[in-house]
Design a protein around this nucleic acid. Structure first.
Length: 221
DNA sequence: TGCCAGGCCGGGT
DNA sequence: ACCCGGCATGGC
């Protein structure tokens, strides 16, 4: 069994299924993917609640909203001016290219859709992959700061590994299975939050402790 | 109270 | 090709 599957097994046993992504519809998940950029999920929940309460959690309705009103509704998510623009860029794309239908959007082949999403100003690799995996159910691995930190500290990749290097490491070491990618990423975030903070690793109590390389946690050079 | 959170972009070397 | 600052709210 590979180190990736062994780690997955430890995490799932320790934490159980994480039930990601929190969100009712694929659209709400896509919105959340933009709002959560470098932000605590708690703050995003408020913003999403505001959009729901305003009755605009739908592509056309949200796109029809005046930009200043959109910004105000998502204020609790932080970076609200930038995110309002990024969200509108995504909405414009969905409305104009796919008639406002995420179902239609996800009918596009994955590689093409990923390129299209990446071409949207404000949608980077993690946001694109989160939309593909969590909103579209497509088997593409999502890499975030926790994925990078946990992987590097275990010596699975170097600290200098870029996004695609880390993504490839997981995708080539695991079967291409969306539910697996979904759960794995959520578990990495969980273990990251609980045990693998940037400046406070608690490796002794971590469920992955016995998988650390000789000499323990690998620190950046 | 400062540090950090499920990034991404633009400008400077 | 890097490195860095800006963007902003809220929790511990």
């Amino acid at each position: 069994m590979s180190h990736l599957l062994r780690a997955y097994d430890r995490l799932l046993t320790a934490f159980g299924p994480q039930r990601w992504w929190p969100g009712d519809s694929p659209f709400e998940i896509a919105v959340g993917a933009v709002l959560v950029q470098n932000t605590a999920w708690r703050n995003v929940e408020r913003a999403i609640a505001n959009l729901r309460d305003a009755g605009v959690m739908e592509p056309r309705a949200l796109y029809a909203l005046p930009p200043e009103e959109l910004a105000e509704l998502i204020r609790p998510a932080g970076y609200f001016q930038v995110k309002a623009r990024r969200l509108r860029n995504l909405l414009k794309f969905v409305v104009e290219e796919y008639d406002g239908s995420l179902d239609a959007m996800f009918r596009t082949d994955v590689a093409t859709l990923r390129e299209q999403l990446l071409s949207i100003h404000g949608i980077g690799p993690e946001t694109a992959d989160a939309i593909l995996l969590y909103a579209g159910g497509l088997p593409t691995f999502v890499v975030d700061t926790y994925t990078h930190r946990v992987s590097a500290r275990h010596g699975w990749v170097g600290y200098d590994a870029d996004y695609h290097e880390i993504k490839d490491h997981f995708e080539s070491g695991l079967p291409a299975d969306a539910p697996l990618y979904n759960e794995y990423h959520a578990l990495l975030v969980r273990v990251g939050k609980d045990f693998c903070r940037r400046s406070a690793p608690k490796c002794d109590a971590c469920p992955l402790a016995d998988l650390l390389p000789e000499g323990g946690i690998v620190m950046p050079t």
